[in-house]
Design a protein around this nucleic acid. Structure first.
Length: 346
RNA sequence: UGGGAUGUCGCCAAGUGGUAAGGCAUCGGCUUUUGGUGCCGACAUUCGGGGGUUCGAAUCCCUCCAUCCCAG
Protein backbone atom coordinates (compact mmCIF):
# COMPACT_ATOMS: atom_id res chain seq x y z
CA UNK A 1 0.00 0.00 0.00
CA UNK A 2 1.26 3.44 -0.91
CA UNK A 3 2.47 5.78 1.79
CA UNK A 4 -0.24 8.16 2.78
CA UNK A 5 0.91 11.77 2.79
CA UNK A 6 -1.06 14.74 4.00
CA UNK A 7 0.08 17.83 2.15
CA UNK A 8 -0.40 21.23 3.70
CA UNK A 9 -1.94 23.19 0.86
CA UNK A 10 -2.02 26.93 1.38
CA UNK A 11 -3.47 27.82 -1.96
CA UNK A 12 -0.14 28.95 -3.37
CA UNK A 13 1.97 27.59 -6.21
CA UNK A 14 4.52 25.91 -4.03
CA UNK A 15 2.20 23.70 -2.05
CA UNK A 16 0.13 23.00 -5.15
CA UNK A 17 3.12 21.63 -6.98
CA UNK A 18 4.17 19.77 -3.88
CA UNK A 19 0.95 17.79 -3.99
CA UNK A 20 1.28 17.18 -7.72
CA UNK A 21 4.83 15.91 -7.44
CA UNK A 22 4.01 13.54 -4.62
CA UNK A 23 1.17 12.05 -6.61
CA UNK A 24 3.57 11.49 -9.49
CA UNK A 25 6.00 9.85 -7.12
CA UNK A 26 3.35 7.33 -6.20
CA UNK A 27 2.24 8.57 -2.83
CA UNK A 28 -1.32 8.42 -1.65
CA UNK A 29 -1.91 12.14 -1.30
CA UNK A 30 -4.48 14.04 0.73
CA UNK A 31 -4.65 17.80 0.54
CA UNK A 32 -5.17 19.74 3.75
CA UNK A 33 -5.88 23.39 4.20
CA UNK A 34 -4.92 24.68 7.62
CA UNK A 35 -7.41 27.28 8.69
CA UNK A 36 -5.33 29.37 11.03
CA UNK A 37 -6.50 32.90 10.62
CA UNK A 38 -9.67 34.38 9.19
CA UNK A 39 -9.80 37.87 10.58
CA UNK A 40 -9.82 40.87 8.31
CA UNK A 41 -7.55 43.67 9.34
CA UNK A 42 -7.84 47.36 8.63
CA UNK A 43 -6.81 48.06 5.09
CA UNK A 44 -6.46 44.39 4.28
CA UNK A 45 -8.87 41.62 3.67
CA UNK A 46 -7.74 38.32 5.12
CA UNK A 47 -7.02 36.08 2.14
CA UNK A 48 -8.09 32.87 3.80
CA UNK A 49 -11.28 32.34 1.84
CA UNK A 50 -9.54 32.82 -1.49
CA UNK A 51 -6.62 30.68 -0.42
CA UNK A 52 -8.91 27.91 0.69
CA UNK A 53 -10.79 28.08 -2.59
CA UNK A 54 -7.55 27.93 -4.54
CA UNK A 55 -6.25 25.00 -2.54
CA UNK A 56 -9.51 23.13 -3.00
CA UNK A 57 -9.54 23.86 -6.68
CA UNK A 58 -6.09 22.40 -7.10
CA UNK A 59 -7.06 19.35 -5.07
CA UNK A 60 -10.02 18.78 -7.35
CA UNK A 61 -7.78 19.26 -10.33
CA UNK A 62 -5.40 16.65 -8.99
CA UNK A 63 -8.21 14.33 -8.04
CA UNK A 64 -7.18 13.99 -4.40
CA UNK A 65 -9.11 14.08 -1.18
CA UNK A 66 -9.20 17.44 0.47
CA UNK A 67 -9.67 18.37 4.09
CA UNK A 68 -9.68 21.47 6.23
CA UNK A 69 -8.01 21.40 9.62
CA UNK A 70 -9.17 24.18 11.89
CA UNK A 71 -6.30 25.44 14.02
CA UNK A 72 -7.57 28.95 14.56
CA UNK A 73 -7.65 28.79 18.31
CA UNK A 74 -4.21 27.25 18.62
CA UNK A 75 -2.72 29.59 16.07
CA UNK A 76 -4.11 32.52 17.96
CA UNK A 77 -2.66 31.28 21.24
CA UNK A 78 0.64 29.81 20.18
CA UNK A 79 1.60 32.25 17.47
CA UNK A 80 -0.30 35.51 17.67
CA UNK A 81 -0.38 35.80 21.44
CA UNK A 82 3.29 34.88 21.60
CA UNK A 83 4.03 37.60 19.10
CA UNK A 84 2.02 40.23 20.93
CA UNK A 85 3.53 39.32 24.30
CA UNK A 86 7.02 39.51 22.90
CA UNK A 87 6.43 42.92 21.40
CA UNK A 88 4.94 44.10 24.68
CA UNK A 89 8.13 42.97 26.38
CA UNK A 90 10.10 45.17 24.02
CA UNK A 91 11.44 42.35 21.87
CA UNK A 92 11.05 41.58 18.19
CA UNK A 93 9.70 38.07 17.70
CA UNK A 94 9.49 35.93 14.61
CA UNK A 95 5.95 34.55 14.45
CA UNK A 96 6.56 32.34 11.44
CA UNK A 97 9.20 30.34 13.24
CA UNK A 98 6.72 29.78 16.03
CA UNK A 99 4.08 28.83 13.49
CA UNK A 100 6.30 26.10 12.10
CA UNK A 101 7.27 24.86 15.54
CA UNK A 102 3.81 24.80 17.07
CA UNK A 103 1.37 24.52 14.22
CA UNK A 104 2.70 23.05 11.01
CA UNK A 105 5.17 20.55 12.36
CA UNK A 106 3.42 19.72 15.57
CA UNK A 107 -0.31 20.23 15.50
CA UNK A 108 -0.69 19.54 11.81
CA UNK A 109 1.59 16.54 12.00
CA UNK A 110 -0.20 15.08 15.03
CA UNK A 111 -3.63 15.70 13.60
CA UNK A 112 -2.66 14.20 10.27
CA UNK A 113 -1.19 11.11 11.88
CA UNK A 114 -4.32 10.62 13.97
CA UNK A 115 -6.36 10.99 10.82
CA UNK A 116 -4.51 8.16 9.16
CA UNK A 117 -1.52 9.80 7.54
CA UNK A 118 1.90 8.18 7.42
CA UNK A 119 3.69 11.42 6.68
CA UNK A 120 3.10 15.08 6.01
CA UNK A 121 4.53 17.37 3.35
CA UNK A 122 4.71 21.10 2.76
CA UNK A 123 5.95 23.39 0.03
CA UNK A 124 8.93 24.61 2.01
CA UNK A 125 12.21 25.10 0.25
CA UNK A 126 14.34 22.80 2.35
CA UNK A 127 15.54 19.21 2.26
CA UNK A 128 15.22 16.37 4.69
CA UNK A 129 17.62 13.47 4.62
CA UNK A 130 17.44 10.84 7.34
CA UNK A 131 15.83 13.20 9.79
CA UNK A 132 18.33 15.96 9.23
CA UNK A 133 17.40 19.29 7.77
CA UNK A 134 19.44 20.56 4.85
CA UNK A 135 19.32 23.79 2.91
CA UNK A 136 17.41 23.90 -0.35
CA UNK A 137 18.88 23.58 -3.80
CA UNK A 138 17.64 27.11 -4.41
CA UNK A 139 19.78 28.98 -1.91
CA UNK A 140 17.86 32.11 -2.75
CA UNK A 141 14.57 30.64 -1.53
CA UNK A 142 15.91 28.45 1.23
CA UNK A 143 13.52 28.48 4.18
CA UNK A 144 15.45 26.47 6.72
CA UNK A 145 15.81 29.62 8.78
CA UNK A 146 12.11 29.36 9.58
CA UNK A 147 12.37 25.66 10.31
CA UNK A 148 15.14 25.48 12.88
CA UNK A 149 12.70 24.85 15.74
CA UNK A 150 11.24 21.73 14.20
CA UNK A 151 12.19 18.41 15.79
CA UNK A 152 14.11 15.62 14.15
CA UNK A 153 11.23 13.27 14.93
CA UNK A 154 8.82 15.50 13.06
CA UNK A 155 11.21 15.78 10.13
CA UNK A 156 11.43 12.01 9.96
CA UNK A 157 7.79 12.07 8.98
CA UNK A 158 8.04 15.04 6.66
CA UNK A 159 8.62 15.48 2.95
CA UNK A 160 9.79 18.66 1.24
CA UNK A 161 9.59 17.81 -2.45
CA UNK A 162 10.53 21.32 -3.55
CA UNK A 163 13.89 21.27 -1.84
CA UNK A 164 15.61 20.02 -4.95
CA UNK A 165 14.22 22.64 -7.28
CA UNK A 166 14.73 26.28 -7.94
CA UNK A 167 11.79 28.62 -7.77
CA UNK A 168 11.67 29.35 -11.51
CA UNK A 169 11.56 25.60 -12.16
CA UNK A 170 8.72 25.26 -9.68
CA UNK A 171 6.74 27.92 -11.49
CA UNK A 172 7.50 26.25 -14.80
CA UNK A 173 6.54 22.81 -13.58
CA UNK A 174 3.31 24.16 -12.13
CA UNK A 175 2.54 25.74 -15.46
CA UNK A 176 3.34 22.55 -17.38
CA UNK A 177 0.88 20.69 -15.20
CA UNK A 178 -1.70 23.36 -15.72
CA UNK A 179 -2.12 23.93 -12.01
CA UNK A 180 -4.67 26.57 -11.28
CA UNK A 181 -2.32 28.43 -8.99
CA UNK A 182 0.67 28.37 -11.35
CA UNK A 183 0.65 32.10 -11.87
CA UNK A 184 -0.29 33.14 -8.38
CA UNK A 185 1.96 35.67 -6.77
CA UNK A 186 4.10 34.55 -3.86
CA UNK A 187 2.66 35.41 -0.51
CA UNK A 188 4.41 37.72 1.90
CA UNK A 189 3.98 38.99 5.38
CA UNK A 190 3.02 37.04 8.44
CA UNK A 191 2.20 33.49 7.47
CA UNK A 192 -1.56 33.03 7.01
CA UNK A 193 -2.36 36.52 8.17
CA UNK A 194 -1.44 38.14 4.91
CA UNK A 195 0.39 41.17 3.73
CA UNK A 196 -0.13 43.50 6.62
CA UNK A 197 2.38 45.76 8.29
CA UNK A 198 3.38 44.69 11.76
CA UNK A 199 2.37 48.10 12.97
CA UNK A 200 -1.16 47.84 11.64
CA UNK A 201 -1.46 44.35 12.99
CA UNK A 202 -0.18 45.14 16.46
CA UNK A 203 -2.20 48.29 16.82
CA UNK A 204 -5.31 46.09 16.86
CA UNK A 205 -4.17 44.48 20.06
CA UNK A 206 -2.20 47.05 22.02
CA UNK A 207 -2.83 50.58 23.14
CA UNK A 208 -1.17 53.39 21.31
CA UNK A 209 0.63 55.56 23.82
CA UNK A 210 2.55 58.54 22.46
CA UNK A 211 6.12 59.04 23.61
CA UNK A 212 9.32 60.85 22.77
CA UNK A 213 11.79 60.08 20.03
CA UNK A 214 15.16 61.02 21.46
CA UNK A 215 18.54 61.60 19.87
CA UNK A 216 20.85 59.17 21.59
CA UNK A 217 23.88 61.44 21.45
CA UNK A 218 22.43 64.80 22.44
CA UNK A 219 19.45 63.63 24.41
CA UNK A 220 17.31 66.06 22.47
CA UNK A 221 13.71 65.22 21.75
CA UNK A 222 13.46 65.08 17.97
CA UNK A 223 9.91 63.89 17.61
CA UNK A 224 6.99 61.88 18.91
CA UNK A 225 5.83 58.35 18.28
CA UNK A 226 2.65 56.38 18.94
CA UNK A 227 4.24 53.69 21.05
CA UNK A 228 7.76 52.34 21.50
CA UNK A 229 6.32 48.89 20.90
CA UNK A 230 6.07 49.62 17.18
CA UNK A 231 9.79 50.19 16.73
CA UNK A 232 12.66 47.79 16.43
CA UNK A 233 16.43 47.96 16.39
CA UNK A 234 17.86 49.30 13.16
CA UNK A 235 14.58 50.64 11.93
CA UNK A 236 14.70 53.74 9.77
CA UNK A 237 11.21 54.51 8.53
CA UNK A 238 8.20 55.64 10.48
CA UNK A 239 10.08 58.06 12.68
CA UNK A 240 9.02 61.14 10.79
CA UNK A 241 12.27 62.81 11.76
CA UNK A 242 14.04 64.66 8.99
CA UNK A 243 17.15 66.73 8.74
CA UNK A 244 19.99 65.74 6.46
CA UNK A 245 20.88 62.18 7.34
CA UNK A 246 18.61 59.21 7.94
CA UNK A 247 17.98 58.27 11.55
CA UNK A 248 17.94 54.71 12.78
CA UNK A 249 16.48 53.24 15.94
CA UNK A 250 19.27 52.17 18.29
CA UNK A 251 17.25 51.40 21.37
CA UNK A 252 14.08 51.89 23.30
CA UNK A 253 12.84 51.96 26.86
CA UNK A 254 9.48 50.27 27.19
CA UNK A 255 8.87 51.66 30.69
CA UNK A 256 9.58 55.22 29.70
CA UNK A 257 8.04 54.57 26.29
CA UNK A 258 11.02 56.26 24.67
CA UNK A 259 12.66 55.47 21.35
CA UNK A 260 16.33 56.32 20.85
CA UNK A 261 17.68 57.15 17.44
CA UNK A 262 20.91 58.23 15.81
CA UNK A 263 22.40 59.17 12.47
CA UNK A 264 25.61 57.39 13.40
CA UNK A 265 25.78 54.22 11.34
CA UNK A 266 28.58 52.98 13.56
CA UNK A 267 26.63 53.25 16.77
CA UNK A 268 27.64 50.41 19.03
CA UNK A 269 24.16 49.10 19.70
CA UNK A 270 23.52 48.74 16.00
CA UNK A 271 26.26 46.14 15.62
CA UNK A 272 26.79 42.87 17.40
CA UNK A 273 30.04 40.90 17.49
CA UNK A 274 28.76 38.64 20.20
CA UNK A 275 25.27 37.21 20.26
CA UNK A 276 23.77 35.33 23.17
CA UNK A 277 20.93 32.93 22.51
CA UNK A 278 18.42 31.45 24.89
CA UNK A 279 15.61 28.99 24.20
CA UNK A 280 18.13 27.03 22.25
CA UNK A 281 16.72 24.27 20.09
CA UNK A 282 18.63 21.61 18.23
CA UNK A 283 16.96 19.55 15.55
CA UNK A 284 19.00 16.52 16.55
CA UNK A 285 21.97 16.43 18.90
CA UNK A 286 23.48 19.74 19.88
CA UNK A 287 26.76 20.50 18.13
CA UNK A 288 30.08 20.70 19.90
CA UNK A 289 31.71 24.01 20.60
CA UNK A 290 33.47 25.27 17.52
CA UNK A 291 33.04 27.36 14.44
CA UNK A 292 29.87 27.17 12.38
CA UNK A 293 27.99 29.06 9.73
CA UNK A 294 25.18 31.11 11.13
CA UNK A 295 22.30 33.10 9.75
CA UNK A 296 20.97 36.08 11.59
CA UNK A 297 17.87 36.64 9.49
CA UNK A 298 15.98 35.05 6.62
CA UNK A 299 17.87 35.29 3.34
CA UNK A 300 20.98 36.69 4.97
CA UNK A 301 24.19 35.15 3.72
CA UNK A 302 25.82 32.60 6.00
CA UNK A 303 28.59 33.99 8.16
CA UNK A 304 31.15 32.37 10.42
CA UNK A 305 30.78 32.35 14.17
CA UNK A 306 32.25 30.48 17.10
CA UNK A 307 29.84 28.58 19.33
CA UNK A 308 30.31 28.31 23.09
CA UNK A 309 27.94 26.86 25.67
CA UNK A 310 27.27 28.75 28.86
CA UNK A 311 24.70 27.16 31.14
CA UNK A 312 21.36 27.34 29.38
CA UNK A 313 22.44 29.76 26.75
CA UNK A 314 24.90 29.71 23.91
CA UNK A 315 27.31 32.45 23.03
CA UNK A 316 28.23 33.14 19.45
CA UNK A 317 31.29 35.16 18.61
CA UNK A 318 30.94 36.46 15.11
CA UNK A 319 33.80 36.84 12.70
CA UNK A 320 32.23 40.06 11.51
CA UNK A 321 29.68 42.18 13.30
CA UNK A 322 26.08 41.87 12.16
CA UNK A 323 23.70 44.78 11.97
CA UNK A 324 20.45 45.20 13.85
CA UNK A 325 20.24 41.84 15.55
CA UNK A 326 17.21 42.52 17.71
CA UNK A 327 16.32 40.69 20.90
CA UNK A 328 13.60 38.16 20.15
CA UNK A 329 14.89 37.40 16.68
CA UNK A 330 16.42 34.04 15.86
CA UNK A 331 19.92 33.01 14.92
CA UNK A 332 20.25 29.68 13.14
CA UNK A 333 23.38 27.53 12.91
CA UNK A 334 24.54 25.44 9.99
CA UNK A 335 27.24 22.92 9.38
CA UNK A 336 27.96 22.21 5.74
CA UNK A 337 24.44 22.85 4.55
CA UNK A 338 22.91 21.05 7.48
CA UNK A 339 20.62 23.18 9.60
CA UNK A 340 21.47 22.32 13.19
CA UNK A 341 19.06 24.52 15.08
CA UNK A 342 19.52 27.80 16.87
CA UNK A 343 18.14 30.07 19.49
CA UNK A 344 16.54 33.34 20.29
CA UNK A 345 18.57 36.50 20.75
CA UNK A 346 18.65 37.72 24.32
C1' U B 1 16.43 100.36 22.51
C1' G B 2 21.26 100.15 19.80
C1' G B 3 24.96 96.55 16.93
C1' G B 4 25.26 91.98 14.14
C1' A B 5 23.08 87.64 11.65
C1' U B 6 19.35 84.94 9.32
C1' G B 7 14.68 83.98 6.80
C1' U B 8 14.51 78.81 -0.11
C1' C B 9 9.33 72.14 0.12
C1' G B 10 7.52 69.23 6.99
C1' C B 11 13.31 69.21 8.30
C1' C B 12 18.67 70.07 6.69
C1' A B 13 20.55 72.70 2.63
C1' A B 14 22.75 74.53 -2.61
C1' G B 15 21.91 78.62 -5.50
C1' U B 16 24.56 86.27 -5.30
C1' G B 17 20.80 88.70 -12.41
C1' G B 18 19.01 84.19 -16.62
C1' U B 19 14.62 81.53 -15.41
C1' A B 20 14.60 76.67 -7.97
C1' A B 21 20.69 71.13 -6.86
C1' G B 22 20.89 67.51 -3.31
C1' G B 23 19.86 64.99 1.32
C1' C B 24 16.19 63.67 5.27
C1' A B 25 11.12 62.84 6.04
C1' U B 26 6.62 61.45 3.61
C1' C B 27 3.87 58.73 -0.21
C1' G B 28 3.77 54.77 -4.00
C1' G B 29 6.19 50.41 -5.96
C1' C B 30 9.99 46.37 -5.90
C1' U B 31 12.75 42.75 -2.92
C1' U B 32 11.19 39.36 1.36
C1' U B 33 6.61 33.46 4.22
C1' U B 34 9.17 37.53 10.74
C1' G B 35 10.85 42.57 12.38
C1' G B 36 14.21 45.39 9.96
C1' U B 37 17.44 46.67 5.97
C1' G B 38 17.99 47.80 0.78
C1' C B 39 16.44 49.35 -4.23
C1' C B 40 13.25 52.28 -7.74
C1' G B 41 9.83 56.27 -8.49
C1' A B 42 6.91 60.64 -6.98
C1' C B 43 7.34 65.14 -4.26
C1' A B 44 8.49 73.81 -4.29
C1' U B 45 5.61 77.64 -11.36
C1' U B 46 8.18 78.93 -6.17
C1' C B 47 12.24 81.26 -2.70
C1' G B 48 9.06 85.61 4.94
C1' G B 49 5.28 89.90 3.13
C1' G B 50 4.76 94.28 0.04
C1' G B 51 6.78 97.64 -3.41
C1' G B 52 10.75 98.98 -7.04
C1' U B 53 15.00 98.41 -10.81
C1' U B 54 15.55 95.07 -15.17
C1' C B 55 14.11 91.99 -21.39
C1' G B 56 14.62 88.86 -17.11
C1' A B 57 15.54 88.46 -9.82
C1' A B 58 15.47 83.58 -4.76
C1' U B 59 19.60 86.48 -6.22
C1' C B 60 20.04 94.29 -6.78
C1' C B 61 17.29 98.54 -4.09
C1' C B 62 13.36 100.26 -0.47
C1' U B 63 10.13 98.90 3.26
C1' C B 64 7.56 95.92 6.64
C1' C B 65 7.39 91.26 9.48
C1' A B 66 9.74 87.13 12.10
C1' U B 67 13.69 84.62 14.49
C1' C B 68 18.60 84.34 16.66
C1' C B 69 23.14 86.45 18.86
C1' C B 70 25.89 90.51 21.24
C1' A B 71 25.11 94.81 23.84
C1' G B 72 22.34 97.03 27.95
Amino acid sequence: MATKVYVGMSGGVDSSLTAALLIEQGYDVVGVYMKNWTQDLPGMRCPWADDLADAKRVAVQLGIDFKVFDFESEYRHKVVDYMIDEYKAGRTPNPDIMCNQEVKFKLFLETALEDGADMIATGHYARVEDGILKVAEDANKDQTYFLYRVTGEALAKTLFPLGDYKKPQVREMAKERGLYTAGKKDSQGICFVGKVGIRDFLSQYVDQTPGDIIDKKSGAVLGRHDGAIFYTLGQRHGLDVGGGLPYYVVGKDMDKNEVYITTDLNDASLWKNTVELSNVHWINEGPQEGTYDIRVRHRAPLVKAHLRYENDIIVLTLENAERAVAAGQSVVLYDNNVCLGGGIVI
